[in-house]
């Protein structure tokens, strides 16, 4: 139960970061914090009153981590591209967001 509440806290923290932060890297981290919170809730749900824990949530979290890693990689690659373009000065077609 403690872990589940920890997970909820992480989700809220990540969501706040996502809304409040401007910097790209920080926003990527915020999404990751949020994801970790969801994974923690899933893991907490695997615990049972008696006997071995339920393996299915573990499999889901593993898959979820793989998805999160690839999504983070793509996000970081895009952030790098944006940073490069900003260093090269104002490229063509740039509009103020």
């Amino acid at each position: 139960m403690l872990y589940a509440f920890g997970g909820v806290a992480l989700v809220c923290l990540g969501l706040y970061g996502l809304v409040a932060l401007e910097h790209m890297l920080r926003r990527i981290l915020a999404v990751n914090v949020m994801g970790t919170g969801v994974f923690l809730i899933l893991i907490a749900s695997a615990a049972r009153a008696e006997g071995a824990p339920d393996p299915v949530p573990h499999a889901m979290v593993l898959t979820g981590i793989v998805v999160a890693v690839s999504a983070t990689a793509l996000a970081v690659a895009l952030a790098c591209r944006v940073a490069e373009q900003e260093q090269e000065g104002r490229p063509e077609g740039e509009v103020k967001p």
Partner: peptide
């Protein structure tokens, strides 16, 4: 396309 606008939008 790698244009700055579309990279930002996609992020």
């Amino acid at each position: 396309t790698g244009k700055a606008v579309s990279v930002r939008a996609s992020f």
